[in-house]
């Protein structure tokens, strides 16, 4: 699960910048887990996640075979790795920051901010994205831990606003791009059903 392309020098995905104040040990553990998942560190699943680990987010909902839209077990971490690398390669620079966090009852809530800039041309069904476009996502993540490992992760962010931002505020262009993404999503879903993984579009 080693990444095919190295992380770009000025990007921070896989080495999250912590801006949150006074973060605790659980948050530190969770951030390490996801940075290592991103980096494809060997043994990451066994070290940080329970065997019955489940993750649910906007992307998993699009491709999951489960009624709750989740991905489960070790393949879910591979999918996380693949989808994030797909994203990172579409942009010249991606900065990942943990801007806020809270810990209580073996639960870590964090707000993560990703700022993507220097687009390489096309992304999420949109073509010829202007080189100076900068888009930011603020996502809320909840990681739940059992016996010192993560057994559940849920994240939420608004993919609609993200798509409209990439389209420079043009909702019509965003809608058309979404239509183009349909076939790609179906291909990912089919691969998931066959137990394979493939980069998200």
């Amino acid at each position: 699960m080693v990444s095919e392309k190295p992380i770009k020098e000025n990007s921070t995905v896989g080495k999250t910048i912590v801006k949150a104040k006074n973060i605790g040990s659980l948050t530190r553990f969770v951030l390490d887990a996801w940075d290592n998942a991103y980096n494809g560190t060997p043994g990451v699943f066994q070290k940080y996640f329970t065997p019955d680990f489940k993750m649910t987010g906007p992307e998993t909902k699009m491709v999951s075979q489960e009624p709750d839209g989740s991905l489960r077990g070790k393949p879910s971490i591979q999918s996380y790795h693949d989808m994030n690398h797909g994203d990172a390669q579409a942009w010249g620079k991606v900065v990942s920051e943990c801007v806020w966090s809270l810990e209580a009852d073996n639960t870590v809530v964090r707000i993560m901010r990703w700022t993507s800039s220097k687009p390489r041309g096309s992304y999420a069904g949109l073509e010829n994205i202007p080189k100076d476009r900068v888009v930011t996502i603020n996502g809320v993540f909840i990681d739940k831990l059992r016996n010192g490992k993560i057994y559940d992760m849920f994240w939420a962010y608004d993919t609609m606003s993200f798509l409209v931002d990439i389209a420079g505020g043009d909702m019509k262009a965003a809608g058309k791009a979404l239509g183009k993404m349909g076939e790609m999503m179906e291909a990912v879903k089919k691969a998931q059903a066959e137990g394979k993984t493939m980069p998200m579009p």
Binding site: P58, K61, I111, N138, A156, Y157, L178, M181
Partner: peptide
């Protein structure tokens, strides 16, 4: 500050039909 996936909600409204 509230976040949710508006796109997935529209997909649910469309009964999964993109």
């Amino acid at each position: 500050f509230t976040t949710y996936n508006l796109l997935a909600t529209e997909l649910d409204f469309a009964q999964g039909d993109l």
